[in-house]
Design a protein around this nucleic acid. Structure first.
Length: 654
RNA sequence: GCUGCUGUAGCUCAGUGGUAGAGCGCACCCUUGGUAAGGGUGAGGCCGGGAGUUCAAUCCUCCCCAGCAGCACCA
């Protein structure tokens, strides 16, 4: 074969030969003119490239068209470039920084003296539509590093210059032009701005730190969403609207579950309805833990900071701790309330040091291990104001916390047991879509590398043995050990860490925990910090959103409402109510002077799962018309049967 | 904590430089109605807090506080 010929393998396995240097577009045209028109990029041996770039060696290729999933990313990426151009044309002097593709869209961070307002979005969007309409081709250039730096500095684009400076020496510096505008970019891009299409929308503006570092400049970020066609865009926007409706903060108000108020920001006022959910969660997990060999304890809320100094929290976690002086406040108006001379106590932000105190009472033998200590510990953390978010991020929270004290050779077994428990629990709540991160050693850490090697391996092995997929979060582990993070998504697509499992080689040592080994010597146990729900508050929030308020019977705040059609049935309804109540069900009675339509509507909106509707007929026949939330029909049963089957279906899954 | 936006009745929201309005909810009356809104009447507001401008501020300005979105941080 001649040296300048190349063999191109198509996805269907067929092969064609071309002159080396033929562009992707030319290959597409040679296959079919329609393909040349539809293609937006080419994949060469799995690597996405511009259609205009020459192919210089034999390869397997795949021509990407708009219907391809990869097209979506390119549309968004190109949209980000178009947005940056639009912004710079409308607001001269604005510096561009970075603009990546994200889930459902893209953003671009700008540096500008005056921030953008939501009103600017309309103008920017309009400009974008013009740029797209003009359809300038995306053109790729390779620049010399110094040339690029000089160019950007000269243009006053200092952030871009910094980006170029920080690129590794080996990196080819590429520039993409669209008409008169250009940006530093790795590519690839679609053939022209026109390919972005018009199915996009700018969503919001927000601040974001340069390079994600809170000590660096605050930039203005503009978020946008972009799709292949209007239909997809519309579906996405509708999805967002639906998601908003199940926001737990909104449902919490509507269903009278809880509230927050200024005087206790970030701390929940649980109403009777909401506290049912909380209590059901707690007693459910308590039953689980009991059967898994955990022993429950209760430890102090207020502990002298000397202990926190010893545990290391004072050093590492102080900015998140509430401190309380152990001092009688002054009643003298002329003096400050607190002199500051009393010793300092801290409200516990975590339970672990207290659990070690219990472990340390008496002498422990290796025979006592593993020792599993659980506590529904109420912890306070002084979270940054901006971090607070309904039940998901609070300042006072209760964890289903436990610490397992064990030997290093017991880690694998304990971790496996925990993960199995974790999955059993989540299954009971209908959560299947859980993402697991294995967070590995951070740059700043305690313990030597050999210990970390073993710990990380044990944690990876446990997941492998259970055949669970996970991602590695490099360097995200705690300073004292690696950890699993179990994430669930909320209604709006935000991901929240719920369960966790962390190995700790440091705290037991710092607090002097020890056991007598088989060899008669003292050894330091390993500690595993673990929580299934994470915090009861957050888990309740996730549950509410996941079920859109329509909680399973066993957790529903009100399981059944007995509603009358006419006052003739009041007495009968009262008797039904009493029977259900005596069975321990959460039942309410509605004998109000309202029409049944009204009652049905009201209790349906309140998301009561079951209604027992009774009128004159039911009273005479000793029957019940059962109406279930979400179904339009009704089911007639004898009173005894209805009560029995309701009681059955209200049972917790464990 | 940072950037931006918001704060009017229990809830959702109008509104104006001359101290306020709707719908829902709530209370009372009429209505006893068969599975998602029967009718009438009425009570509810220090217009987030403080200062300033003004004859006059819920509205304009500034400062606080809180909420929301994002960032950073995290269960």
């Amino acid at each position: 074969m001649e040296a300048d010929r190349i063999i191109i393998t198509l996805p269907d396995g067929s092969q064609r030969d071309y002159t080396a240097g033929t562009t992707g577009l030319e290959i597409a045209s040679s296959i079919a003119p329609s393909l040349a028109k539809a293609a937006i990029a080419i994949e060469i041996d799995g690597e996405l490239r511009d259609l205009s770039r020459p192919v210089d060696k034999s390869a397997a290729i795949n021509l990407i068209t708009r219907t391809d999933d990869k097209a979506l990313e390119m549309i968004r990426h190109d949209a980000a470039h178009v947005m940056a151009q639009a912004v710079q044309e409308l607001f001269p002097g604005t510096q561009v920084t970075i603009g990546p593709v994200i889930e459902n869209g893209f953003y671009y961070d700008f540096a500008r003296n005056a921030p953008f307002s939501t009103d600017d979005l309309a103008a920017i969007e309009k400009k974008m539509r013009q740029i797209i309409e003009q359809g300038a081709p995306f053109e790729r250039d390779v620049w010399e590093r110094d040339q690029a730096i000089a160019y950007f500095k000269d243009k006053g684009e200092y952030f871009k210059a910094e980006l170029v400076e920080d690129l590794p020496e080996s990196e080819t510096i590429t520039i993409y032009r669209q008409g008169d505008w250009l940006d530093l970019c790795r590519g690839p891009h679609m053939p022209s701005t026109k390919h972005v299409g018009q199915a996009f929308k700018l969503m919001k503006v927000a601040g974001a730190y340069w390079r994600g570092d809170s000590s660096k400049a605050m930039l203005t970020r503009i978020y946008g969403t972009a799709w292949r066609n209007d239909q997809e865009l519309k579906e996405y926007l509708t999805m967002l609207e639906e998601a908003e409706k199940r926001d737990h903060r909104k449902l919490g108000r509507e269903m009278d579950l809880f509230h927050f108020q200024e005087e206790a920001q970030g701390s929940v006022f649980w109403h009777p309805n909401g506290f049912v959910i909380y209590n059901e969660l707690e007693s459910y997990i308590r039953r689980r833990l009991r059967d898994e060999g955990y022993k429950e304890v209760k430890t102090p809320q207020l502990i002298d900071n000397k202990l926190w100094e010893k545990s290391g929290h004072w050093g590492k976690f102080r900015e998140n701790m509430f401190v309380v002086p152990d001092e009688v406040p002054s009643t003298d108006d002329d003096k400050p309330v607190i002199s500051g001379e009393g010793r300092l106590m801290a409200i516990k932000p975590m339970n672990c040091p207290a659990h070690v105190q219990i472990f340390n009472q008496g002498i422990k033998s290796y025979r006592d291990l593993p020792l599993r200590m659980a506590e529904f510990g109420c912890c306070h953390r002084n979270e940054a104001h901006g971090a607070l978010h309904g039940l998901m991020r609070v300042r006072q929270m209760t964890q289903d916390d436990a610490h397992i004290f064990c030997r290093e050779d017991q880690i694998l077994d304990e971790v496996k047991k925990f993960v199995a428990l974790f999955y059993a629990v989540y299954k009971d709540f209908g959560f299947e879509d859980i993402s697991i991160m294995l967070a590995t050693r951070p740059a700043q850490r305690a313990g030597d590398d050999a210990v970390w090697d073993r710990a990380e391996k044990a944690m990876a092995d446990a997941l492998d043995k259970l055949e669970l997929p996970y991602e590695i979060a490099e360097g995200e582990g705690a300073f004292y050990g690696p950890k699993y993070e179990f994430h669930l998504r909320d209604a709006i697509g935000r991901s929240w860490q719920c369960g966790t499992c962390q190995l700790d080689f440091v705290l037991p040592e710092r607090l002097g925990a020890a056991y007598i080994g088989e060899d008669g010597n003292r050894h330091t146990p390993v500690m595993i910090h673990r929580a299934v729900f994470g915090s009861l508050e957050r888990f309740a929030g996730i549950l509410i959103e996941s079920y859109a308020g329509k909680l399973p019977l066993w957790i529903a705040p009100v399981q059944c409402v007995v509603a009358t059609i006419t006052s003739d049935a009041d007495e009968y309804a009262q008797a039904l109510y009493q029977k259900l109540f005596d069975l321990g069900l959460r039942v309410e009675i509605d004998t109000r002077n309202e029409k049944i339509n009204y009652k049905v509507r009201e209790h349906s909106l309140a998301k009561v799962p079951v209604m027992f509707v009774v009128g004159k007929r039911e009273a005479e026949e000793q029957s019940v018309a059962i109406r279930r939330l979400g179904s339009n029909g009704q089911e007639i049963k004898s009173a005894d049967e209805a009560i029995e089957s309701l009681a059955q279906s209200c049972k917790a899954p464990y």
